[in-house]
């Protein structure tokens, strides 16, 4: 503020006023009107978990190896299985995933050796009950229903 003329004419303040004035251009608006406009979610986004099934046979890809449950820092995955006496392999009976405690770190996804468990791009996981946050095998395979908003 060395220049007294600038001080008197408030040039520093006018500069700021001009900056905000320029920002009024409608094309500069960055607001996204969620839910009317959905934010674009990146391909690698770590959102709602999904238990993948074989695209043709609809059989689960999970081999019940329990690695995801071991990798999970919050121990929120429970894999139950029973040994099939014919194939000598473990068959998945249930798979629960407590999304309320999940922090979407992606460690389970990394641990899965067969790409059965995957974090998807879905991010609308709100429920009205705490119990609704615990997803079972059916929910994990089908995925959450797309949310519809009315206004």
């Amino acid at each position: 503020m060395a220049n007294p003329i600038n001080t008197f004419l408030l040039t520093d303040l006018l500069k700021g006023l001009w900056t905000t004035f320029k920002n009024q251009k409608p094309s500069l608006v960055v607001t996204e009107q969620y839910p009317r406009e959905r934010p674009p979610v990146m391909e690698r986004y770590r959102g709602a978990p999904r238990l993948n099934t074989h695209p043709e046979t609809a059989e689960t890809l999970c081999i019940s190896c329990n690695l995801c449950a071991l990798a999970c820092p919050e121990q929120l995955i429970v894999v139950t299985s029973e040994r099939n006496p014919e194939t000598r392999r473990k068959d998945l009976t249930n798979f629960t995933y407590d999304t309320s405690r999940c922090m979407f770190c992606g460690l389970c996804e990394d641990a899965c050796p067969v790409d059965a468990l995957e974090l998807t791009q879905d991010f609308e996981m709100a429920t009205f009950t705490r119990e609704g946050q615990i997803w079972d095998r059916q929910m994990l395979e089908e995925g959450p229903l797309p949310t519809e908003y009315r206004h």
């Binding site: 990146m42 391909e43 986004y45 770190c105 974090l119």
Partner: peptide, 10 residues
């Protein structure tokens, strides 16, 4: 960040 690793904040 989101494009690289799938999360934005944490």
């Amino acid at each position: 960040f989101e494009k690289y690793c799938g999360a934005r904040l944490t």
